[in-house]
Simulated scan of single mutants.
Amino acid sequence: MLKELFVNLTILITFNYLFTHLFKERLIHKKDRLSFQLIKGTACGLLGVILMNFGLTYHHSIIDFRNIPIMIAALYGGWVSTATALIIIAAGRMLISLNESALYSMITICIAAVLSLIASRREKVQLKHVLLLLIISNGFISFFFYVFVDIHSLKLHFYFWLISIIGGMLSLYIIEHETNAHLLFKQYKFQAHFDFLTGIYNRRKFEEITKDLYQQAAHTPSLQFSLIYMDIDHFKTINDQYGHHEGDQVLKELGSRLKQNIRNTDPAARIGGEEFAVLLPNCTPEKAFQIAERIRHSISHTPIVLTNGEKLSVTASLGVAHYPRNTDKPETLPVLADQMLYKAKENGRNKVWFSKKKNEFMF
Score class of each variant (00 low, 15 high):
residue 181 A to L: 11
residue 76 Y to K: 06
residue 357 K to H: 11
residue 75 L to M: 13
residue 287 K to V: 13
residue 278 V to H: 01
residue 197 L to N: 11
residue 354 F to R: 09
residue 203 R to Y: 09
residue 235 F to A: 08
residue 196 F to Q: 15
residue 167 G to F: 03
residue 163 I to V: 11
residue 322 H to G: 04
residue 3 K to I: 13
residue 265 T to R: 12
residue 291 I to E: 04
residue 261 N to F: 02
residue 221 P to V: 05
residue 218 A to T: 13
residue 164 S to A: 12
residue 50 I to S: 10
residue 11 I to L: 13
residue 338 D to C: 05
residue 114 V to Q: 10
residue 262 I to L: 08
residue 11 I to E: 01
residue 38 L to H: 05
residue 323 Y to N: 06
residue 227 L to W: 01
residue 64 D to E: 11
residue 99 N to Y: 02
residue 286 E to S: 15
residue 171 S to M: 06
residue 43 A to E: 06
residue 250 V to Q: 00
residue 286 E to F: 13
residue 330 P to Y: 03
residue 147 V to Y: 10
residue 336 L to I: 14
residue 242 Y to D: 09
residue 277 A to M: 03
residue 344 A to D: 06
residue 268 A to F: 00
residue 19 F to H: 04
residue 312 L to F: 08
residue 218 A to N: 14
residue 22 L to Q: 14
residue 4 E to P: 06
residue 271 I to V: 09
residue 327 T to K: 01
residue 362 M to S: 13
residue 44 C to I: 11
residue 256 S to Q: 13
residue 91 A to K: 08
residue 287 K to P: 03
residue 44 C to T: 13
residue 147 V to A: 10
residue 352 V to E: 00
residue 66 R to L: 12
residue 351 K to D: 09
residue 322 H to D: 10
residue 133 L to C: 02
residue 7 V to Q: 12
residue 107 I to F: 07
residue 219 H to F: 11
residue 345 K to W: 08
residue 107 I to E: 00
residue 346 E to N: 13
residue 268 A to L: 01
residue 227 L to E: 00
residue 5 L to N: 10
residue 85 A to K: 02
residue 174 I to P: 01
residue 291 I to Y: 00
residue 251 L to P: 00
residue 53 N to S: 10
residue 214 Y to M: 09
residue 316 A to I: 02
residue 251 L to H: 00
residue 345 K to D: 08
residue 139 G to D: 02
residue 45 G to E: 01
residue 345 K to L: 05
residue 85 A to D: 05
residue 153 S to W: 04
residue 132 L to C: 14
residue 262 I to N: 03
residue 20 T to F: 03
residue 88 I to N: 06
residue 135 I to N: 06
residue 197 L to S: 11
residue 285 P to E: 10
residue 358 K to M: 15
residue 330 P to R: 08
residue 282 N to E: 14
residue 338 D to L: 05
residue 359 N to T: 04
residue 301 H to N: 14
residue 257 R to E: 06
residue 89 I to D: 00
residue 219 H to T: 15
residue 125 V to K: 05
residue 98 L to R: 13
residue 4 E to W: 09
residue 162 L to D: 07
residue 336 L to G: 00
residue 67 N to M: 14
residue 315 T to F: 03
residue 60 H to Q: 15
residue 108 T to D: 12
residue 43 A to L: 11
residue 99 N to T: 05
residue 284 T to V: 09
residue 211 K to R: 14
residue 307 T to R: 12
residue 277 A to Y: 04
residue 164 S to M: 03
residue 253 E to Y: 04
residue 118 I to W: 13
